[in-house]
């Protein structure tokens, strides 16, 4: 499971460098994100711009990560490709997750809440 990781203040921006988040990948994905959380990340922005295919297992893995981080920490998403966005809309998960149109938008939103 490959991520490109950048720290922007309190935000840990992780870009998933995989084209699929599916049943074959979801366990490894959960392990990798858990490790990042356990290392101390309190606000994760997951960039899914490279993911052109996600199934219900992938969606379940995202829910699992949001739960793992609990209410004190933040798990947010950006860069949803059209296919992934479709799965989010159909399952109404777009109303559960905080989804940003771009990384920049997510970073600005975070700055605004700090002020």
């Amino acid at each position: 499971m490959k991520f490109e990781r950048q720290e922007h203040g309190a935000i840990t921006h992780i870009k998933l460098e995989e084209t699929r988040l599916d049943a074959a990948q979801s366990i490894r994905f959960k392990e990798a994100v858990r490790e990042i959380v356990d290392e101390g990340a309190t606000h994760i922005l997951l960039d899914m711009g490279a993911v052109n295919f996600m199934d219900s297992s992938g969606l379940g893995a995202l829910v699992s990560m949001m739960k793992y981080m609990g209410t004190e920490k933040k798990f947010e998403l950006t860069g949803l490709t059209p296919m992934v966005e479709k799965v989010f809309k159909l399952t109404r998960m777009d109303e559960v997750f905080q989804v940003y149109g771009s990384t920049q938008e997510a970073l600005s939103a975070s700055e605004n809440t700090l002020i």
């Binding site: 199934d55 219900s56 739960k67």
Partner: peptide
């Protein structure tokens, strides 16, 4: 949809979306 909007974070389903899709 397995999702209910009154669900707390802890109660969000992690599965069951397959047949729904």
């Amino acid at each position: 949809t397995p999702l209910k909007f009154e669900d707390n974070l802890d109660e969000l389903p992690e599965g069951g979306f397959g047949w729904f899709l």
